[in-house]
Write a protein that binds this DNA or RNA. Structure first.
Length: 215
DNA sequence: ACATTAAGTGATT
DNA sequence: AATCACTTAATGT
């Protein structure tokens, strides 16, 4: 991808936020990266010394315990960044989350050293970082609430609606098993509750596909 | 036609 | 809500 295309993409999603000088700097020091659906971007305990800016696509963020049991926390969308990677000035601590591309995605990787530099230099960058933190922490609260207070059927339905919103398509390509893994439950439970949601007219079930009608 | 994988279901805890 | 045990349906070779 050449500079012009990259510049165009950056402007598409960050123009309103970043001033021209900052965009120029991003173009200068950033590297473009394309990831395919289901590609692992960052795994738990890996070091990530770059700041990712998501241009297009979506990234699924999950946690895992020592037994390998996994649970999805939230999704990153275009224009988002991973605030977890801001955590430490030098990017030396290990990642506590896993990021997998939910669909083909494009991102720009920035050297973490620029974080401090731009914080003093650009008002828009400061705002962007603080906003990102806010958005992320609110997503986290939402994830906690969902886990703590919602029953499995509501969690499944919320999960489906979130996916529709993020992928911008009410026809989801997924299996009951994948949902079970993401929500950390069993496939049998997912199948039952999905059937119930279908009977309520909220979704329609097919093999390897789920159509969300009420979103 | 057969094997494999996804999905549906009753019964039990 | 989880698990078992089994059935049925769809898809690949």
């Amino acid at each position: 991808m050449n500079k012009e295309e990259l510049s165009e993409k950056l402007n598409d999603f960050f123009q309103v936020i970043f001033e021209k000088e900052l965009i120029d700097e991003i173009l200068e020091v950033g590297t473009y990266k394309m990831v395919k659906e289901n590609e692992l971007l960052i795994d738990i305990d890996e070091k990530f010394d770059k700041i990712p800016l998501l241009l297009t696509g979506a990234i699924k963020i999950s946690r895992e315990d020592k037994n390998g049991d996994e649970i999805v926390l939230y999704f990153l969308e275009r224009g988002d960044t991973c605030t977890v990677s801001f955590g430490n000035g030098l990017g030396l601590t290990k990642s506590k989350i896993r990021g997998v591309a939910e669909k083909d995605s494009e991102l720009i990787l920035l050297p973490i050293s620029k974080l401090d530099e731009w914080m003093v230099k650009y008002e828009s960058w400061r705002t962007f970082v603080i906003d990102s933190y806010n958005i992320r922490i609110n997503e986290m609260f939402e994830a906690i609430d969902t886990l703590a207070f919602m029953n499995m059927e509501d969690r499944i339905f919320k999960y489906l609606r979130d996916k529709v919103k993020i992928l911008r398509d009410p026809m989801l390509s997924t299996t009951h098993q994948e949902i079970a893994t993401d929500l950390h439950t069993s496939r049998v439970v997912v199948s039952r509750l999905l059937k119930h949601l279908e009977n309520e007219g909220k979704i329609r079930l097919y093999r390897n596909r789920i159509e969300v009608l009420d979103y």
